[in-house]
């Protein structure tokens, strides 16, 4: 038996709309994830042992919250925080309804990547900045974030790729986008051609994100 792919089930206008939805979800959630994750990551780093604002209790509590959020599977997290989502965006559906769960899932993940990158910054450089009379805020802004730039860019790339797969899962609760299309047509109606098209588009998206990220990391590496 030969499988004939004619793409007869594919409605390209719907694919186009789904692609736009996926990009919108990805873009919006990535922006919020970067802002919140960076903040959380910097606080995690600064409050950890032997660092500028060593606060073991604060660090422990934040760490637990991050671990809890990271250990709940995304599909379940999405359902669990529906009331919160509704309170923020007024809906749990569509592009808007998926952004809060995407951010809640991805920000702690990105925060850990930020923390790890900041740990890589040479302690001697921080000490030199202190010796020059830098405040903690100066050190965060002018030393840590600058020196960790390649690591942070790599972390953003990993987070963006992770978000792509989360947006696909968001289709489960009517989030829209390519994942939703694949699920509704490809899985529920056995339209394999639709599934293949959406998967190819997702692969291309991930590929492009990774290439762009790698380029930026290379562009900003000075070692």
């Amino acid at each position: 038996m030969t499988m004939r792919l004619t793409f007869e089930n594919v409605r390209w206008s719907e694919v186009w709309q789904a692609s736009k939805d996926t990009l919108a979800m990805l873009g919006a959630s990535l922006v919020f994830t970067i802002v919140l994750g960076l903040l959380l990551g910097v606080v995690l780093f600064l409050t950890s042992r032997h660092q500028l604002i060593a606060q073991p209790i604060v660090y422990f509590l934040l760490s637990v919250v991050v671990n809890v959020l990271r250990s709940v599977p995304f599909v379940i997290l999405m359902i669990m925080i529906m009331p919160v989502t509704k309170a923020i965006t007024g809906t749990t559906l569509g592009v808007q309804g998926t952004i809060p769960p995407l951010v809640v899932a991805a920000a702690p993940f990105f925060a850990r990547l930020v923390e790890t990158s900041l740990r890589e910054v040479d302690r001697g450089v921080i000490e030199a900045a202190q010796a020059m009379g830098a405040s903690r805020w100066d050190i965060v802004r002018r030393v840590l974030l600058l020196e960790a730039k390649p690591g942070l860019l790599a972390g953003i790339t990993i987070t963006a790729v992770t978000l792509v797969s989360y947006t696909a899962m968001a289709g489960v609760i009517g989030g829209g986008g390519l994942g939703d299309l694949a699920l509704r047509y490809g899985y529920q109606r056995f339209q394999t051609d639709v599934m293949i098209v959406t998967v190819i588009l997702l692969i291309i998206l991930v590929q492009l994100l990774q290439m762009a990220g790698d380029y930026l990391v290379r562009r900003f590496s000075r070692k």
Partner: peptide, 8 residues
Amino acid sequence: HFNLLAMA
């Protein structure tokens, strides 16, 4: 070890 900013 000089402790210069590598990124600057």
